[in-house]
Every structure is written in structure tokens, then in C-alpha cells.
Design a protein around this nucleic acid. Structure first.
Lengths: 209, 209, 209, 209
DNA sequence: GCCTAACCGAGACGGTACGTCACGTCTTTTA
DNA sequence: TAAAAGACGTGACGTACCGTCTCGGTTAGGC
């Protein structure tokens, strides 16, 4: 999974002392701990990470080319596994997907890490691209698949722009957690969002246009 | 507007050489130019800004307490004035509001600055709070006012959660521009979003639940 | 004298804050102090020098390209001025020259610095060359001048190899101080050496060959 | 000879694979090669030595406690055996001793090693002491013995300071080779030095004082 | 002919120092 | 007194080497 624990591609040989998994883990844990402790990103120096992990700086640079590269793995490690989709209805699947996103951005530990690492990555185009390709796009594609099936099943209108639909589902959640830093993502929020996207907010008797 | 061009409050005297407006302007322009040129945020040192502006570092620190403080003014300077709302219908006003946001995040110059400065601010809680209070909240409040009026007028159901509604309107646009870095925000997008939020995506004949 | 206190040649301008002489002096003093305190050369890190001098590392690297370059100036600063030669007789001048050398390698402060810096320079061909050209050669030339005048005056045989003669005068002193680390350079040593070089050690009645 | 090839005293057992002599030799050869190639001492890292020798770092540290310890053995290995003294006359023996020293400091291979290792040792008091006791002092004592015998035989004056005499013989040669880096040590140089020390440089008719 | 301890090359380990760069402040000359 | 210039102390950067430790694999005895 993580690209850091393996040896560099130039090193075809498997000779020499293998890298300690404990060290790699300690580094990731140290970054997460510092994130959780609310250490400002600007104060998150490699030297401090090494000190916190009880590790030499070289052990970090042996695994990651630089600080940005490390943060990608931290955020990957903090990402929980995607949960199974029930697949009974489009609505149900969408609720599960949003609930999964809500949990991720809500849960105390993962949340602090995600917020900080996310922020950090945004200032590094190269890392952002990697994160985008590795984390965001796969999830988006999963959502698109669910929507496409729902359109076939008649749960959506045939002319629906799926790209717009997925943004309308995900946008509100991300706005709340990342832009507004709102810790209050109520339990039923995913269902509410899905229902608004499906049914709209106009009065029930209101005619279409 | 900007708090930087005036003298500090401790400086009661107006004697001595007055501050050159050209210098202050040159600094702001230099930051914007560097943002536009796609300089990574990590490479945006004060020394480079001073070099680009043809200005001494002290001239910057005389006006802003630190780099973060400077960026607040840059983003403020880059924010275009809010346009007038026609006020004829909730739907129309919402489209105008979203169109305004779309323009801001779309336009080449402002966009690059916004994206970069936005990113920068996210890593600085203090600055983010200032930006939040000064830019985001007023606009959000404006949107809430429009929605509230629409609810009174019967353009929205009475039980609508306005906070959720505003996020559902704004979220998709911000997702596209800030998260997905999608430069393709088509002309009719604001209208589409508003319509989805009002009418939903389910088939027309589909019953509510 | 020292090439370090002046600005780099590329910097034609005299604008900006000038380098503080006190800082440059504090750095040299710090190195000398550490030498005197018997700090092993291997422990003489730039960071420690900066700490001792109460100075930033950058202030050192602004003046000297690296540690070796610094040591050249330290040894130069430690070299006392050459004393005046009476010029009455070759023998008298030689004694004065050797006495001067003895004082330099004997005196507590200068000695510790000389020994350490000397040693350090020996491991750096580039720096050794600079020291050789700037310190050793001028003194050697002074000695050669004295010898040449003595040869003209009949104080030396006409066929004397002056290069050999100078080495025979200087060699014993340097052997004692630098190779054997003998702190005991007795008062009359220069006179003894000069007399051996002039008169030899064979019994007085012994015939030449 | 070298204390490095034997197992540590704590290792009473002789079981297990014995140390390869070829490895120990390759390490010494690698250091000598690097010295010969003019590699600056500062660049002579243990890792580079191991790389050059095609050997693991542990193989070095298994034999020598540290880099200094290794250099002692290198210089010992580079020292040629002392030659036999004819013993017919003090003058003849002194010439042989000096000629031996001249050869050692002149010969290309040994010379480069000697110069470099010598320099290195000078910066390490502990190693310098070992070299002093093991190499310099025995030779010096040999020279003193020759001089003492010469004084008894009437080849020297009875009041001659032998310590001074030995320094006057050895000093000029070391000055030339180690301080001045003069590769030009002419054939007859030892004889010239001995003659100056015996007969002096004053004109033949010049009276004593 | 095994067994096994100590060797071997390779390279990771926690450290320390390197020389560079940017921070925000301070000090000079010039206008 | 503000301006540009640039030195100041501080501290993180990423690199290299220190001396130690740990891999899988090799090479000799002693059984």
C-alpha cells in the first residue's frame, strides 16, 4: 500500500539489514500524534518528528523523499478502509457512502490528521495530485458507479448530469468539515443531503417551473 | 479598507517622510504576480516578494506584522466587490450569488490568487479565522437572508434547514474549484445547482418516498 | 590584512548594513579560546564556535567559505608582528630571527593556537598552500636575505648553500615544538643553534676532513 | 606485528570462521591507495575505505576500534625496516641514518602515505603519542647512541648537547619534506647536513668567536 | 559429512555536524 | 523619517559520515 516501506526501485538487491517496520510505524505514529496534539503545521519540522518518534532524521529521509512525501503516507494511513455497499438501492448506497465520509471527517483522531494533512497537501501541487489520484478519484468513481446504476434503475432521471450529482452530494459535507470546521455533523445528515438531491426543497405542491 | 496602509496607532506623529503608496501597492502586486505565475506557496518567501517588488524587507514588515498578515490583505484586495441582488425571486437571487462565486473562482487572475492564498490561509488558523469572519461569514449570511425570505414567500418548504440549504448550494462549486481544481465551470452551472436543490433529481413521476 | 572582514568582491556596492567588526572579532576570539582550552580539533564544530562566540552560523559563513578558511585567518591573527632586525651582524640577526620563532612557538596563547591551527591546516592542501605563501615564505625570505648579506660580508663561506643553511637553523626549533611537542625551549637555544651552524660540533683541534 | 589481525582477548574461543587475512590486507591497501591518489584526509571516510576495499564497514571495526587506530597500523605498515648501521665511524653512521630517513620521506609510495597519515595523526593526540613512542623515539634513541659513541671516540666535543645535535641533524630533512613539501632532496643532502653540523659554515680562517 | 560459531557484504539504526536558506529584527547610507 | 540594502541571531532544511546493529549467506574448524 504505502510506497515508503519498500526499498527504492534502484535497489534490486535484497541484501543488507532490512528496514525496521517498527521504525516506519513509529514515524507515522509520531506525525499523527503531533497532528492530534494540535501542533501547527508550521511547527511540524522533520527534526521534531524524528525526536518524537525516537528516530534519526536519516530514517525518515530513507523512506520519504521529503516532508510532503511523508504526509501523503500519513493521510493514507489515516484513511480507514472503505466499507461494503449493500447495493439494494441507489439511495441506500449513497447514504452509506456519505456516512462513511462523515465518519472519516468526524472521528476525533482521523479528523485532526485529515484536516492538517489535507491542508498541508493543498500547498503542494505535486502531493495534492498524488492524493487526488490515489484517494479522491477512486471514491468519486465508486459514487459515480452507484449513481449510474441508479439512473439505469429509474431512481434518477435519464438526463441527470452525474458529475454534478456527485458534487452536490459530497460538497455540503466537505464544506462543513473542511471550510467551516464545523464539528457538528448530525447523525442524519447524509440522509438529509441525499433526500434534498433527490427531491429538492420546493414546496411539494409547487409545479416544476 | 486594508489595515496596512495606515500608520500604526502608536505612531501619533505625522512627521517625517510619509509612506509611499507606490511601495505598498508594489508589494501587493508582487504577491499577486507570484501567485499568478504559479509559484508554489512554499517558495513564496518574504525575501522573494521584496525582490520581486524591488522593495526592502523592512518596507513589508513596516506594513504587515508577518507573512500571514500580508496574505490576508492580498486576498482581500483580490476579492471583487459583491454585486447587487435583483431581489425579484429567491431563485434569481441564488443564481446571482452562485454566479458571483463562480466568477470569482473562475476568473484567471483572481482565481490563481484565491486558490493560493486560500491554501495558505488554511495552514494558519489565525488567518483563516480572520478570513472566515471577514469574507465567508458575510457572504453566507447574505445567502441565508435570501433563503429566509424565500421560505417566507413560499418558494421553500417551511421545514427547510437553511444551513443545510446554503451548504448544498455552495458546496458543489467549491468542490469543483478548490478540491478538484476543475477549470471548467460551465455557464449554466449556477442555475443547474439551484434547480437541483429546489426540485431534486428523481424522476418527475416518482412519488415522495 | 584578513580577507574575511571585507565584503565579497562581487559586492561592489557599499550599501546596506555593514558587517560588524565586533562579530568578526568575536568569532576569531572564540576559536582562539577553544584552542586554548584544549578542545580537540575534531570537536571544534562550526556550531560550537558560533555558540561560544554568541553568534549565528550564518555570520561565520558570510565571512569565511568554510571551516578551513576560518582557521587560516585565526592563525594569521595569532601570528605576532615580526620584530625589527638590528642589522649589526649576521649572527645577531639570525639569533633575533630564531628567538622570534622560539617566542612564537613557546608563548602559551599563541602556541596552543599555532599548534592546533597548524595541525588542522596540514590536513587541507588548499589552506596549507595559502599559509605557506602568506606566512612561511616571507619569513624564510627574510632569513635568506640575512644569510646573503652575511655571505657578502665574509661571515659565511662563499660556497654555502643558503637554502640548506636556513633549514638547518629553523629545523631544530620546529622539530622540538611541532614534532616533539617539547615545551622546554631553553633561553639560549637560538644562540646555540646559530653557533653550531657557524662553527660545528667537531673538536676544535680536529682537522677539516 | 599489527595488533589488529588477532582476535580480541575477550574471545577465548577459537571456534567459528577465522578472520580472512585477505580482508585485513585489502583494507590496509585501500587506505594506502587512497593516500597515494591524493585524496584529502577530510574525504577519507570509513565508508569510502570500505567501498574501495570492497569490504563491509563491520570488517573494519572488527579489526580496529576506530579510524585513528586504523591509521596507526597503516603508517606502521608503510614504514620500511631500519637498515643496518656499518658502525665504522660516527659520521658514516649518521649519514646512513639520515639517508634512511631521506629515502623514507622521498620514496613515492611510502612518502604519500607518510605525509598523509602523519598529518592525520597530528590531529589526534592519542594516536600521535602511540606513533611517537613506537616510531620516532626508537629512531631518535638510535641516533643518540651513535652520537654518544662519537663523543666518546673524540669525534664530537665533550660538551656537546646530544639532544640539540640530533635535532640539528634531523630537523632540516623533516622541514624540507613535511613543512615545505619539497620533493627535491638531493643525493648528497645527508652528507652535507652532517658536515655542517660537524664543521659549521663560517669561513675556514675565521676564529672561534 | 554435518554442526555451529564467527565470519562476510550490505545497509539500516540513532546521532551529530555540515553548509544553505528563510525568518523577523536591526543598522547603515541616501533622499 | 522612510527608503533599499543587507547583516544579525535563530532554527529547519536535506546530506554525509560516525560507530553500532542486524540481515541472509559463507566458511572454516570440531564432532
Amino acid at each position: 500500500m504505502s510506497h515508503a516501506e519498500s526499498r527504492p526501485p534502484s535497489c534490486g538487491s535484497i541484501r543488507g539489514r532490512p528496514r525496521s517496520k517498527a521504525v516506519g510505524q513509529a514515524i507515522l505514529e509520531a506525525v499523527m500524534k503531533l497532528f492530534e496534539d494540535g501542533v501547527p503545521l508550521a511547527d511540524l519540522s522533520v527534526e521534531r518528528i524524528a525526536r518524537t518518534a525516537g528516530v534519526g532524521k536519516a530514517a525518515i529521509y530513507r523512506r520519504w523523499s521529503d516532508k510532503e512525501d511523508l504526509f501523503v503516507d500519513v493521510i493514507r494511513a489515516a484513511e480507514p478502509a472503505e466499507r461494503e455497499l449493500p447495493g439494494r438501492s441507489m439511495r441506500g448506497d449513497l447514504v452509506v457512502l456519505l456516512e462513511s465520509l462523515r465518519q472519516r471527517t468526524l472521528a476525533s483522531r482521523s479528523s485532526a490528521i485529515l484536516h492538517n494533512a489535507h491542508t498541508q497537501m493543498r500547498s503542494s501541487p505535486k502531493i495534492w495530485a498524488a492524493y487526488h489520484a490515489g484517494v479522491i478519484t477512486p471514491r468519486r468513481d465508486l459514487g459515480l458507479k452507484v449513481l449510474r446504476r441508479g439512473r439505469l434503475n429509474g431512481e434518477l432521471r435519464q438526463d441527470v448530469d452525474l458529475e454534478l450529482a456527485i458534487d452536490m452530494l459530497v460538497g455540503p459535507l466537505l464544506i462543513r468539515s473542511f471550510i467551516r470546521h464545523d464539528p457538528d455533523l448530525p447523525d442524519g445528515l447524509p440522509e438529509q443531503i441525499v433526500d434534498v438531491v433527490l427531491h429538492g426543497l420546493r414546496p411539494v405542491s409547487s409545479p416544476r417551473n
